[in-house]
């Protein structure tokens, strides 16, 4: 284990892959001592020399045998832009693994409903990969993913593969009408409301912009799915990653420590408060 959680480990950028016009996936491998294994849903603090550090979720199979990590970054600011511009051979600093995971293990025996919006698919991909790897442990695996338009889906080739995979029930839906699109047009809550879910045997996993997660959680609750069975990945300003700097508070929660994965029973009253 990296003894000092504040000290980054050196990782080498092995591959880069442009996902959308503003998102890139990096596969990074340890340049020295590897970090401890990540669980799906956990995040790293990813550092680009001289620019800064941001929290990024792990978007690849966290059980990769070579100790590599796949992370998907959207260019939304100075650090993310610098990370998006990384090239193979570049060195990045990585701290982690931090935060709570999706805890897919505890969902064994249940139907899984995965609802992703935009780049929210990144931290959920390991859930789907995990469910496929141990497919027999779960009931139905429903994946509903929304994007602004067809060009803004992450992992497009993989999504196409999933859509054809009889082990999954995949719906792709877009917000903005687009030519040559053969999937659905509508907010993620629409295909979600059409699902014939069994409340007692459903566990939902949500990630995306906060209103999208609230609306989706409410749609699930309207189908009698208990708030405690709905898991969300929350986002706040993470700085230290280990509950020492105070930035990522959401009421009683330190999101880096008590999250990012939180159940809706906990999150609902907090997300309802303006500017909490």
């Amino acid at each position: 284990m990296n003894a000092d959680p504040m000290l980054p480990a050196r990782y080498l950028v092995a591959d880069t892959r442009r996902e959308t016009h503003d998102s890139v996936s990096l596969r990074i491998v340890p340049a020295g001592e590897p970090l401890p294994a990540f669980r799906p849903g956990q995040f790293t603090m990813l550092y680009r020399q001289g620019v800064g550090e941001i929290a990024i979720s792990v978007s690849g199979d966290p059980s990769a045998a070579d100790g590599s990590l796949t992370q998907t970054i959207r260019d939304v600011g100075a650090v993310s832009r610098a990370l998006c511009r990384c090239e193979p051979g570049d060195i990045v600093g990585v701290r982690g693994p931090f935060g709570t995971g999706w805890d897919l293990e505890s969902a064994a025996g249940h139907d899984l409903v995965v609802v992703a919006g935009g780049v929210g698919l990144a931290p959920l991909r390991p859930v789907v990969l995990g469910a496929l790897a141990r497919r027999a442990e779960f009931g139905r695996v429903v994946v509903i993913t929304g994007a602004r338009n067809p060009r803004e889906f992450l992992f497009r080739e993989q999504l196409a593969g999933w859509a054809d995979d009889p082990r999954l029930e995949v719906t792709l839906t877009i917000d903005q009408p687009a030519a040559h699109w053969h999937g659905q047009v509508g907010f993620v809550t629409e295909p979600l409301a059409r699902q014939e879910t069994e409340p007692a045997r459903t566990i939902a996993f949500l990630c995306g912009p906060e209103p999208m997660m609230r609306f989706s959680a409410e749609a699930l609750m309207a189908r009698q799915i208990p708030a405690a069975s709905i898991r969300l990945s929350l986002e706040r300003n993470m700085k230290c990653g280990v509950g020492l700097c105070g930035h990522c508070q959401l009421g009683p929660l330190l999101i880096c420590r008590d999250g990012p994965i939180v159940d809706y029973e906990t999150a609902q009253p907090l997300l309802a408060v303006r500017e909490l």
Partner: peptide
């Protein structure tokens, strides 16, 4: 109303890049 709310959700353009 449900149809209208879902349509309004799309108007929020939630997946747009903050940049």
């Amino acid at each position: 109303v449900a149809r209208l709310q879902n349509t309004r959700s799309r108007l929020l353009d939630l997946y747009g890049n903050p940049r």
